Computed example of a mutant assay.
Amino acid sequence: MNSKLIAAALAATLCLSLTACGQTPASSGASASAGSSQAVESAASAKSGEPRTITDLGGHQVTVPAAADIRKIVILSPPVMSFVIGAVPDTEMIVGINARSFLTSNPQIVEKAFPNWQSVESSFVDVNFAVNTESLLALEPDIIFYYGDFQRKGIEGLAIPAVDFLMKGVNSPETMSVAWDGQIRELLSTDTSVGIQQEWDATNAKLDKLLAQVGDEKKTGLCIKLNQAGSLMVMGSDSFDGWAQSFFALGGIENAAASIEGTGEVSMEQIYQWDPDFIMCFQDAPASYILENSIEGQDWSLLSAWKNKQVFDVPRTTYAWVTPCADSPLFPLWLVSKAYPELVSDDEVRTEIREYYQRNYSLELTEGELDSILDYREATGI
């Protein structure tokens, strides 16, 4: 993978959304069954070599190859990568990918789950999702995975089946991740009797028991999306580029920034007024900078979260957990462990992650790899 491209992507990502980049914000209230109806017509035709007509998650009718004829995949949508590598028969089938897929992932875990990731072509798309058509066609993809009309603009008119992963009006991480997983498994004829829905069912059962022990006084949390050059962006109400509120709700936590529509810039004075019980950091300045109170122009020492050392980085595996990804069922349990440590210990979270990777990836994570998931930015300074 071109190192200059990755460097450019790292710089550009400071001001761009990693999920949709320019999509209309999603509203709430969509049915949890929204994704389940978007199914491939028949498994029989998937294996017969005959093309199939599907309705993708964006509501488009798309004619796609039989699963046996899908040998080369291009992925434009960064978080969708995490689902593909768990469902694809061989990651060598991924011939093109958006380099932004790796900007908030954990290279140690990506290397383990997607060993050929550094050799996959990425120069055909830049950090603004502008596609070089000639370079894309040279990859000879059988199918393209994208997210919404913004990403579709670069591939319209090409004689390549393109499948949309944007479900408009959905802000449930469970609904979205289950739909993405299901669409990929149907397209590739991967076993649909397993997958992320079973993991969500297990997580929800655990959460029911854990949160029954939480009283009326719920903890408040704040997710800082960006902290760069004195600008603080927080994740408020659910939107296309901020899922913190839905994840907080799953963990029995109130979003301190719920009054902010979507993702918005706030002042330190506003954060003082909210005084959240704990803070998690997504990009730019890591939690360690806040705990050291070393960011110029920002005094975090006045906050309860700082005084109680309740400032954390969002965990990273094949993608950052605050965006729907293939490891999303783990995130609410991690949140509970931070907001209500008396209910879930750090050791229990490590066990959950280890067993999850055994079940879903057939991978054995070392203690060092578990450390990298939970403390990656502290160790690297990223």
Rank of each mutant, 00 (worst) to 15 (best):
Glu121Pro: 13
Ser122Val: 03
Ser123Gly: 14
Ser123Glu: 14
Ser123Trp: 06
Ser123Tyr: 11
Val125Phe: 01
Asp126Glu: 12
Asp126Lys: 03
Val127Leu: 11
Val127Ile: 03
Asn128Glu: 15
Phe129Glu: 04
Phe129Asp: 02
Ala130Thr: 12
Ala130Leu: 10
Val131Trp: 07
Asn132Val: 06
Asn132Leu: 07
Asn132Cys: 10
Thr133Met: 12
Ser135His: 09
Ser135Cys: 06
Ser135Met: 14
Leu136Asn: 11
Leu136Asp: 12
Leu137Ser: 13
Leu137Val: 13
Leu139Met: 08
Leu139Pro: 07
Glu140Ile: 00
Glu140Leu: 07
Glu140Asn: 04
Glu140Gly: 01
Asp142Phe: 14
Asp142His: 11
Ile143Gln: 01
Phe145Lys: 11
Tyr146Glu: 08
Tyr147Cys: 04
Gly148Ser: 00
Gly148Cys: 04
Phe150Cys: 13
Lys153Thr: 07
Lys153Pro: 11
Lys153Cys: 08
Lys153Gly: 11
Lys153Tyr: 02
Gly154Leu: 03
Ile155Asn: 10
Ile155Phe: 12
Ile155Met: 06
Leu158Ile: 15
Leu158Glu: 13
Ala159Lys: 06
Ala159Ser: 09
Ala159Val: 02
Ile160Ala: 00
Ile160Gly: 01
Pro161Phe: 10
Pro161Ile: 02
Ala162Phe: 12
Ala162Asp: 09
Ala162His: 10
Val163Asp: 09
Asp164Val: 06
Phe165Tyr: 15
Phe165Asn: 05
Met167Ile: 10
Met167Leu: 15
Met167Cys: 09
Lys168Gly: 08
Lys168Ile: 03
Gly169Lys: 13
Gly169Asn: 09
Val170His: 13
Val170Gln: 13
Val170Glu: 12
Asn171Leu: 12
Asn171Ile: 15
Ser172Ile: 06
Ser172Thr: 03
Ser172Ala: 01
Pro173Lys: 09
Glu174His: 06
Glu174Phe: 05
Met176Phe: 04
Met176His: 00
Met176Asn: 00
Ser177Trp: 14
Ser177Leu: 09
Val178Trp: 11
Ala179Lys: 01
Ala179Met: 01
Trp180Tyr: 15
Trp180Ala: 07
Asp181Thr: 05
Asp181Leu: 02
Asp181Asn: 12
Gly182Cys: 06
Gly182Leu: 13
Gln183Glu: 15
Ile184Arg: 13
Arg185Gln: 08
Arg185Asn: 05
Glu186Arg: 12
Glu186Pro: 05
Leu187Thr: 05
Leu187Asn: 08
Leu188Ile: 01
Leu188Cys: 07
Ser189Val: 13
Ser189Pro: 08
Thr190Gln: 07
Asp191Ile: 02
Asp191Phe: 04
Thr192Tyr: 15
Ser193Glu: 09
Gly195Leu: 05
Gly195Val: 05
Ile196Lys: 04
Gln198Thr: 00
Gln198Arg: 00
Gln198Lys: 01
Gln198Leu: 02
Trp200Arg: 03
Trp200Ile: 07
Trp200Gly: 03
Trp200Ala: 02
Asp201Ile: 02
Ala202Phe: 06
Ala202Leu: 12
Thr203Glu: 04
Asn204Tyr: 02
Leu207Ser: 11
Asp208Leu: 04
Asp208Met: 08
Lys209Gly: 06
Leu211Gln: 10
Leu211Met: 09
Leu211Glu: 09
Leu211Pro: 07
Gln213Pro: 01
Gln213Arg: 11
Val214Gly: 02
Val214Ala: 08
Val214Asp: 02
